[in-house]
Design a protein around this nucleic acid. Sequence first.
DNA 1: CAGGAAACAGAACGTTCGGTATCCTACAGG
DNA 2: CCTGTAGGATACCGAACGTTCTGTTTCCTG
Lengths: 219, 219
Amino acid sequence: MGKSVSKRKAVAASAAGDEESARGRLLSAATHLFCKNGINATGIDAIIDEAGTAKTTLYKLFGSKTNLVNAVLESEGKAWREWFIGAMEDGGGDALAKLKRIFPALKRWFAEERFYGCPFINAVAEHDKDAKQFRNIALRHKKVVLAHIEKLTAEMGAAEPQVLAHQLALLIDGAIVAAMVSRDPGVADTAGLAAANLFGASKVKKTKRAGHPAELVAV
Amino acid sequence: MGKSVSKRKAVAASAAGDEESARGRLLSAATHLFCKNGINATGIDAIIDEAGTAKTTLYKLFGSKTNLVNAVLESEGKAWREWFIGAMEDGGGDALAKLKRIFPALKRWFAEERFYGCPFINAVAEHDKDAKQFRNIALRHKKVVLAHIEKLTAEMGAAEPQVLAHQLALLIDGAIVAAMVSRDPGVADTAGLAAANLFGASKVKKTKRAGHPAELVAV
DNA sequence: CAGGAAACAGAACGTTCGGTATCCTACAGG
DNA sequence: CCTGTAGGATACCGAACGTTCTGTTTCCTG
């Protein structure tokens, strides 16, 4: 999302994010406008205007607005996941060090001029909530992110890696929507603080106490 | 939001949620459709169909779709806040007991057939993110909720009541969007567990340690 | 230079949108 | 009985939508 995916692969050219090709320009313009103004509120004309292409080109390359929406979500999701996982992994350190990079990374994202929230959450928000279409796409995206976080929480020796990972995911989603509404990147600090508390609690459980899972809720 | 606001005030009749009057039926239908399918995706005709009124009536009572949207958000926001605060307060107990009722209450909401996420978040998500219109409405709503939570975190003797309250708010938002996407009320349990950890950490800070705010982030 | 693909420009399509205008019905209180 | 008012039905308006169409320009390749 607006992460610009610097350089990507430098292969061939016909890839998704090629800014030179008509396809790349359309994808880029559609991504920007869908995220900024919403999918339903963005007309075909606005997209081709920003992309500098003709309507014919869009329909030859994507066939329909629906297909374009799907292409945008797919490419943007992939780019975001690569950026996010990279932000955790790059710099090395142990699993806990990587997890602690989550919210500083999000804060950088929130501070970008073109931060418009999570495209998947937003797509679900503006469509029929009984339809599975966008919810499934969003779930698939979240599952990949969650899997990586879960790997790290297990690696750091958390008492309940899955629970901790889900809790972190909730904080991430909460921070994203709060940042979208408030436009205050500082919410990432609050979320990071909460996460630090969860890390501490999870470690205590494993290294200092025996079991008593009831205490989990009790305090 | 779908909380149905049982009985409300029983006064006069011209109030917002009167299911008998044309105004009440329009408000109810618009609320349902806006939340379920999105504001932009909901046409006037669909609203009057569900309300069983004529188009004339809608425009006589509300003047425009924009006004109707505002009326819906205002009435729904008020109803939701009354329900949510009531869910915390009703039953008594100390401040911590009240705070611990947050996520069980949310879970009940998530499990409702007509749960479609937070109308304010959704409204922001499907409109221009550079415009302040819906973001301000959403912020006002969240500020009222946050103020009540903050009152309780202070009352329970949290070391940093404001920080804790913001953290809880993030968990609430995260749980709402996660529940909207996944349709799994169980996310409320995960959020509740995280909240319990935060309660514990906040108490420790006050009763067992002296200060060292650096430790807050350190672990 | 010829030919063809790719992208251009833009008119037009049928539909739906938000909103208006006209007329009709039911029923209240004098 | 008369009349005011709240609401219902429907036809309509201009604009915008997604989509398709007819052409024109550009440029690479044989």
